[in-house]
Computed example of a mutant assay.
Amino acid sequence: MLVLALDTATPAVTAGVVELTADPTAPPAVRAARIAHDARKHGELLMPGVLAACAEAGIALTEVDAIVTGTGPGPFTGLRVGMVTAAALGDALDVPVHGVCSLDAIAVEAAAGSPTGNLLVLTDARRREVYWAAYDREARRLTGPHVETPAALVARLPELAVVAAAGGAAEQHADLLGLPVLAPAAPSPAGLVAVAADALRSGAAPEPVAPLYLRRPDAVEPGRRKRVSTP
């Protein structure tokens, strides 16, 4: 099975072609990947990355059997780019689209480097906050995703019993967290497909893909205009 993996929940714009076999013990094999870093150009960079990854993998886009997309948490505009692109391609190619938590995709790879305890995954949420979730040594999510300030997260660390951190905001706040920082900083094609592997192999219809925004949008519907009284 050839799977197209996309994620735009972080400043990294991720696209890749991953081969997944029916063997549940075989990890996803990346045929090609394109990862660019520009938080302001998700829309411009994603489809060129998709086409470049397909070309490197030696396949046409029409040969993709399924699509996996990160659903965040992430900023509104960037996150929508990946999810809308995945939905449009799934409809055009008539293939299933599976959504996975982007933090889960980071955790499944990082957990291999933290076999002795729980793992913290955090990414930049802007506004001086972070998105985060905690995982056990098997990359099973224990709590989250949440959004809050780094200081508030640090206050929770004793109860979380984490021994390492991963994700783009982990290195940024490494001194505050006081934890070893593991790779990766952003979801990879292999990590995204690994999270969805059981669903992909089963052939079950995917659940509706829903974004994990965790915040209300900044834009609000304008209120009713005030009535101007006449003299």
Rank of each mutant, 00 (worst) to 15 (best):
residue 131 Y to S: 02
residue 153 L to H: 01
residue 215 R to Y: 09
residue 49 G to P: 04
residue 33 A to Y: 08
residue 164 A to V: 08
residue 116 T to D: 14
residue 107 A to T: 11
residue 1 M to N: 10
residue 230 T to N: 06
residue 31 R to S: 15
residue 25 T to A: 10
residue 219 A to I: 14
residue 169 A to H: 02
residue 136 D to N: 12
residue 168 G to N: 13
residue 102 S to T: 11
residue 166 A to Y: 00
residue 158 P to D: 05
residue 138 E to D: 15
residue 109 E to R: 10
residue 155 A to D: 13
residue 151 A to Y: 02
residue 123 T to N: 14
residue 107 A to N: 08
residue 195 V to D: 02
residue 42 H to N: 12
residue 63 E to A: 15
residue 92 A to H: 07
residue 33 A to D: 12
residue 1 M to L: 14
residue 175 D to K: 13
residue 166 A to T: 03
residue 157 L to T: 05
residue 13 V to N: 13
residue 226 K to H: 15
residue 67 I to R: 00
residue 1 M to E: 09
residue 95 V to Y: 06
residue 152 A to N: 14
residue 230 T to K: 12
residue 160 L to F: 07
residue 136 D to E: 06
residue 30 V to G: 03
residue 231 P to I: 12
residue 31 R to T: 08
residue 154 V to I: 08
residue 53 A to I: 10
residue 135 Y to H: 02
residue 15 A to C: 07
residue 176 L to W: 07
residue 161 A to C: 08
residue 183 A to Q: 13
residue 146 H to D: 04
residue 114 S to E: 12
residue 87 A to R: 15
residue 152 A to F: 05
residue 139 A to C: 12
residue 83 M to A: 07
residue 85 T to H: 03
residue 38 D to I: 02
residue 52 A to Y: 05
residue 159 E to R: 12
residue 154 V to E: 08
residue 165 A to K: 00
residue 160 L to W: 04
residue 87 A to I: 02
residue 100 V to K: 01
residue 118 N to T: 06
residue 211 P to Y: 03
residue 220 V to Y: 05
residue 94 D to H: 11
residue 217 P to N: 11
residue 171 E to T: 08
residue 76 F to E: 06
residue 228 V to R: 13
residue 147 V to N: 01
residue 7 D to K: 03
residue 1 M to Q: 10
residue 104 D to E: 15
residue 3 V to M: 11
residue 90 G to P: 07
residue 67 I to M: 03
residue 132 W to N: 01
residue 96 P to Y: 13
residue 76 F to C: 10
residue 183 A to T: 14
residue 9 A to M: 10
residue 56 E to L: 13
residue 149 T to M: 09
residue 137 R to V: 12
residue 187 P to H: 11
residue 22 A to Q: 11
residue 230 T to M: 10
residue 77 T to Y: 11
residue 166 A to R: 00
residue 46 L to E: 03
residue 1 M to Y: 03
residue 193 V to Q: 03
residue 150 P to D: 09
residue 18 V to T: 13
